[in-house]
């Protein structure tokens, strides 16, 4: 399916979605964090979209909110889509895990948790993946301070 057909199809899911104005390589959807898992499940299981492969999952700190970006691809239909979701609670950001849909989310979500501190509900083994277990704080957050190791430019 091309982007326009995908857009029409995904709008028919009945989930509240916005489409950003700016040009991008893939069709991009913005969804509320509480409806993210529902949308992801539909995208994977609907026969017309059948996004069976998540090729990237990223966390971003935008200072005013935290964002998680999902890059999805269908290996049978050969189309891609990007799903973005923004969490406003910086103190205790939580999101539903998509581990039950794409197993690759296991390590991706551990990495996002490790570096940005976003917690994923229903993740089977949410603990630090790169940093030491006793590390304090989340170093990729914009407000992270470490006076010993970091030389500020």
């Amino acid at each position: 399916m091309n982007s326009q057909e995908l857009k029409t199809k995904i709008e028919s899911f009945g989930i509240e979605i916005t489409f950003p104005e700016e040009e991008s390589q893939f069709l991009t959807l913005i969804v509320n964090p509480n409806q993210l898992h529902q949308l992801a499940k539909q995208l994977k299981e609907n026969i017309d979209t059948s996004f069976d492969y998540m090729f990237c999952q990223t966390g971003i700190d935008w200072l005013e909110n935290m964002e998680v970006v999902y890059h999805l691809r269908s290996t049978s239909k050969e189309h891609e889509v990007v799903v973005r979701t923004q969490i406003t609670d910086r103190e205790n950001p939580t999101l539903d895990s998509v581990y039950d849909l794409w197993k690759t989310a296991d390590f991706h979500e551990r990495e996002i948790f490790d570096l940005l501190g976003i917690r994923f509900n229903n993740h089977p083994d949410l603990r630090r993946i790169f940093l030491d277990d006793d590390w304090e704080g989340y170093p990729l957050r914009k407000d992270y301070v470490d006076e010993i190791n970091i030389v500020e430019l």
Partner: peptide
């Protein structure tokens, strides 16, 4: 990685 890195030995 000398500046602004939390993980690299300088």
């Amino acid at each position: 990685f000398y500046y602004n890195s939390y993980s690299v030995i300088k």
